[in-house]
């Protein structure tokens, strides 16, 4: 799984920062059929969350209507220097994690 994160390297305490995430995943909807007419089984990421400063600051439940290679932009308040953790969980509970650090002054 390839992940791309856009997190500011630094911010002032209290600033609202924009975070962008992109992950490679086909998000197979379960509504498509193959060349033989067989339904292609659903295979999607079900959940995304961002944990920062000990709290889940943003969480998303994803459905088959999320495009392949999910792109999500959200915001959070810069509170402390440290790591933001990004966690994607697929329908079988398989987890992809990535972190980014931020310096808050």
């Amino acid at each position: 799984m390839t992940v791309r994160l856009s997190v500011p390297q630094s911010a002032k305490r209290g600033d609202v920062i924009e975070i962008k995430t992109l992950i490679s995943h086909q998000m197979e909807s379960g509504f498509r059929r193959d060349a033989f007419g067989e339904v292609i089984p659903r295979d999607i990421l079900k959940e995304f969350r961002c944990v920062y400063d000990g709290q889940t600051v943003f969480r998303a439940e994803l459905f088959p209507a999320i495009s392949a290679n999910p792109f999500i932009t959200f915001h959070t308040v810069a509170t402390v220097s440290g790591e933001l953790e990004f966690v994607w969980t697929d329908q079988n509970g398989v987890v992809t994690r990535e972190t980014a650090s931020i310096e808050v002054t």
């Binding site: 390839t2 791309r4 962008k20 992109l22 992950i23 490679s24 392949a68 290679n69």
Partner: peptide
């Protein structure tokens, strides 16, 4: 950033 081609 958002161009999904960059994943590849």
């Amino acid at each position: 950033f958002a161009n999904p081609g960059f994943l590849w």
